[in-house]
Design a protein around this nucleic acid. Structure first.
Lengths: 243, 243
DNA sequence: CGTAGGTTTGACTGATCTCAAGTTTGGTGG
DNA sequence: CCACCAAACTTGAGATCAGTCAAACCTACG
């Protein structure tokens, strides 16, 4: 676990390195980006649907999610994020936020000017490839979510969402699927899967009864990773080796 | 309606023009891209989940969709496409197809080498912005679909999907929402909304009874556009003025 | 220790699915 | 041009998964 924000910022560079073959000059260009770091408590909004935003946020520590709201009060989480993720790269070219951005746990994040990021993508083709590829993988993940919410049963949906999260967490170097508890609450899982908190709770109970997860107080962890993947029909190819 | 494929190709250029301010040199660069044109019948697959693809497809005439399949036979359409859309720009940087691509009506399309497209994005920043912006809007649309499938009732889901389609069709210069019938079948609407064909049919019946759409044989058209938008809670800002 | 907010449980409801039997449609060949 | 066929669409009846409502219970926090 990185101990300071400067070290944490290296995670993004490391991630981009996996997405395209960067040269040392590319890494240096990233490091030289002016950024400021911040800490936000759980539930803090970094951005709200409709806002005009000219900064990009890089998650350094903790977990966050993006969500959209329906006029009638419905809430749908559209993605979860792990350290190293750029949370809103789209603001490089799209100024109006079509969704909100919220901290799940306490988070550390960096803000970088969208214009600065745009600038380095002009100057450094490898960074352009890596960042563009990142946004394309983002889109691929959304497609999988449409499938997940549209065509899977409640239990499979939940399982799939958990599989994706821990796979991405592991890719970010934060431990194997069974190693750490999951940060999201039943209510958040409900909002991510298009279910109600009540029903999520029942399914979580089932998964616990079958020994797939273990629950203790307001936390839970995966105890049978192979079985969870099986329940979810999880196939990580849609992550395009981002994970 | 363009009468030949060369004229049709101008639609993409026109679309990119709306996404970024192109110079004449940018438009020329697009026109000079080597491409070949093809015709495919309804249901024809341009691409299947898992394929390795190095060409990009540009839709010139007709309608197409992208979908993902679940191992157990479920099918989820993740987007519909109108003439002028690049159907798989992601293959510029991602080689493995994470979804299938299928014609809905008879279509005319052009294939352009992904490498050529990548090349012009290096040489012409305005084209890079336009194309990148296009992929970001694509992602925004997927997010809206996650919300649609996850948090709306059957009728609103269907209405929303129809609203988006006709809005995009109009943006492509193909007539106002009420002007032409819709090309998709109940079964396809079902696959796009995460419902069954049986239930879609019932909802379509309701919408027809309320005078929102008109059905005749295996076609239907919108007859009350304001009411349809209202049922759908449709707000086009997520299309980021692509439409 | 008291309170507020989220979680859990139970009983009931209802939206959507499933299954299966018609019906329409568009294509094909005589 | 008409009869036939396959495929898709419709319709109805019954089943079920997930939602709603409401009460009780934690848990964290002041």
């Amino acid at each position: 676990m990185p101990t300071n924000d400067k070290d944490s910022f290296e995670q993004v560079i490391h991630k981009l390195d996996r997405l395209a073959s960067l040269e040392e000059a590319d890494r240096e260009a990233m490091r030289s980006l002016p950024f400021s770091t911040h800490i936000a408590p759980p539930h803090h909004h970094l951005l709200r649907q409709g806002d005009v935003e000219t900064d990009c946020f890089v998650l350094l520590q903790g977990y966050a999610c993006r969500y959209k709201a329906t006029r009638t009060g419905g809430r749908q989480i559209v993605s979860f994020h792990v350290p190293g993720d750029v949370l809103n790269l789209q603001h490089m070219l799209l100024t109006r936020a079509d969704h909100s951005l919220q901290a799940i746990t306490e988070i550390h994040f960096a803000t970088v000017s969208a214009a600065d990021i745009k600038q380095i993508t002009q100057e450094r083709p490898a960074l352009r490839d890596a960042l563009w590829r990142d946004t394309l993988i983002d889109a691929s993940v959304f497609r999988e979510w449409v499938l997940n919410v549209g065509r899977r049963t409640a239990k499979a949906r939940i399982a799939h969402m958990l599989c994706e999260f821990v796979t991405r967490r592991e890719a970010a170097g934060l431990g194997s699927p069974e190693q750490y508890p999951l940060p999201m609450s039943p209510a958040q899982i409900a909002d991510a899967t298009g279910l109600t908190a009540v029903h999520v709770n029942r399914m979580l109970y089932d998964l616990a009864r079958d020994g797939v997860i273990h629950r203790y107080k307001h936390e839970f962890a995966i105890t049978d990773w192979p079985r969870l993947r099986q329940i979810a029909e999880f196939d990580a190819t849609y992550l395009h080796a981002a994970a």
